[in-house]
């Protein structure tokens, strides 16, 4: 399958291609490809009818609606606040900036279970912040709002980290050119800066969305996990497994993968279009 291309001498000078490539492919196959293909084959083996039967169950549909809905809202919030945070970190100087920059990756490094109980401690009705929200009629923990909050938490680094290099790479002259032509700061932002960073923003959005759809650990603690109300798809897979309904779990997992794959494909298409525009045709 793998052939040397280009300068064959280059391949011959350095040793170890055969063994490293062999090991790479073997390890990849055993750890990743074999188990993933099991999911594909098993779900295909269920048959269309059985698959549909499982997925069309109201409880499953409700969990999908919640999972994909909350993930989309969370990714949108992240796109907005991620842009503000990334802008602040690349453009301004203020005390504590370095610490703030370093802490952006916390949701990525922190075990999700820890994030889950920590967010619950803060946003539960008697929690640090929850106690002030409760009288306002704002119930966060144990509601879809809490689930969304957890998904915002875990998706944050993805938007910020994809936007930071894009903002840092913005050509200074472009903004000066817009200003010299009489554009206001706001006009420059919307007409010049946003179109340029839109591809990166969409990438960050897609990454945050993908992560949010699959998230489990941080959500189950802050959610009340009630069927039809606050039960996410990942949790439904686990409860199917607990009932030894492997086929049902497989069907839900396959549908989840298919939907998120479709969503990401759509975002990718939009992003491709936007990137082409941002790069100017070509």
């Amino acid at each position: 399958m793998f052939h040397y291309l280009g300068n064959p001498n280059r391949a011959r000078v350095l040793p170890g291609f055969g063994i490293t490539m062999g090991y790479t492919v073997l390890y990849l196959s055993v750890i990743v490809l074999l188990p993933l293909s099991a999911l594909l084959l098993k779900s295909a083996g269920l048959g269309w009818e059985r698959l549909w039967q499982t997925i069309s169950h109201p409880r499953v549909l409700a969990s999908f609606k919640l999972t994909f809905g909350a993930a989309t809202i969370a990714a949108t919030i992240n796109a907005l606040f991620g842009l503000i945070v990334a802008w602040t970190l690349t453009r301004y100087k203020f005390p504590g900036k370095r610490l703030m920059d370093a802490m952006i990756d916390l949701p990525f490094a922190m075990p999700t279970a820890v994030s889950g109980i920590a967010l619950t401690a803060v946003y539960a009705p008697r929690g640090w912040i929850g106690q002030y929200l409760e009288p306002l009629g704002l119930k966060v923990a144990y509601t879809p709002l809490g689930i969304t909050l957890a998904l915002v938490f875990i998706g944050l680094p993805f938007v910020v980290r994809t936007l930071q290099p894009a903002l840092a790479d913005l050509d200074q002259e472009i903004e000066e050119a817009a200003a010299s032509l009489g554009a206001s700061r706001l006009q420059t932002f919307w007409r010049v800066i946003v179109p340029t960073i839109l591809p990166a923003l969409l990438t960050g959005f897609a990454l945050a969305l993908a992560r949010a759809i699959g998230e489990y650990g941080s959500v189950i603690f802050i959610s009340s996990n009630l069927p039809m109300k606050t039960e996410i798809a990942s949790l439904l897979i686990i409860s199917k497994l607990d009932q030894y309904d492997v086929a049902g779990a497989t069907a839900i997992a396959a549908a989840m993968l298919a939907i998120s794959f479709g969503m990401l494909l759509a975002i990718n298409a939009v992003q491709h279009f936007v990137a082409r525009r941002a790069e100017g045709g070509a």
Binding site: D171, E173, E176, A178, R191, T196, A278, G280
Partner: peptide, 10 residues
């Protein structure tokens, strides 16, 4: 500008 600074998405 030295490097033109054209808006590449326009």
């Amino acid at each position: 500008f030295q490097h033109y600074a054209l808006f590449r998405h326009m």
